[in-house]
Amino acid sequence: MNQANTTVVAFRNFFQEVGQLTSFLVKFFKQVFVPPYEFDEFAKQSFIVGYKSLPLVGITGFIMGLVLTIQLRPTLVDFGAESWLPAMVALSIIREIGPVITALICAGKVGSGIGAEIASMKVTEQIDAMEVSGINPFKYIVVTRIVATTLMIPLLVIFSDFIALMGSFLAVNIKSDVSITLFITQVFDSLDFMDVIPSLIKALFFGFFIGLIGCYKGYTSSNGTEGVGASANSAVVVASLLVFIIDMIAAQITSLFT
């Protein structure tokens, strides 16, 4: 009986959460296109999300490119297809690893940051204070952050792909001798617009949901300072999970067109 009650409560909470998130999403779309636009805050958030995440994303991308190449090499050598290495690595990085790894890193770094920041604003009643002083807090805090993550994460993915390919080039050159021109030719020969464009669209969705979940968790935070930690934590968990779910859906949709 007790178990059944717990299940019912869990389901009720889940649907309540989904409902709240949907109304949060609707509120965002209602306000995003309506002036006044907070350009300064948007630029600041873009700087934090994009520029400040670049070193982390860059290092991760570089290592992923390097490691993937080193790991793939023995199998390809077994098949006598070593010359396919740049093409295979490029396809894996551009289609999958670049966007997903970047999104996961940003879910951890940016998602938790946004969640904790907004939650602490909420707890310390800064949001209420904004409302009193005539600033629309939702527009100032939430809209700017979601738009910033939506636009900056695809840009970070481009950087990550580029740096990962550089890492791969280095790894290819550890064992064999491939010129940069040949490497670029082999990489771009294997790529198509149907590899690049879906991956960037996917990254837009990753960015949007990382921002949305971070803001939502922060904005609906409660229980004082304890709630700040909980918001940051659940923002990362939910955003990371959503990254994988979106990735799965994106893979299904992309496979329909190819």
């Binding site: 630029a43 600041k44 873009s46 700087f47 994009g50 520029y51 670049l54 840009l155 970070l156 481009i158 950087f159 580029f162 670029i184 771009f188 790529l191 198509d192 617009f193 690049v196 960037l200």
Partner: peptide, 23 residues
Amino acid sequence: NKMRLGIFISVGLIILIAGIYLI
């Protein structure tokens, strides 16, 4: 910061455009 952001965005877009051009 705005200048750095500008450089960041510009370089990202240049890489994207170069990639699109090559493909």
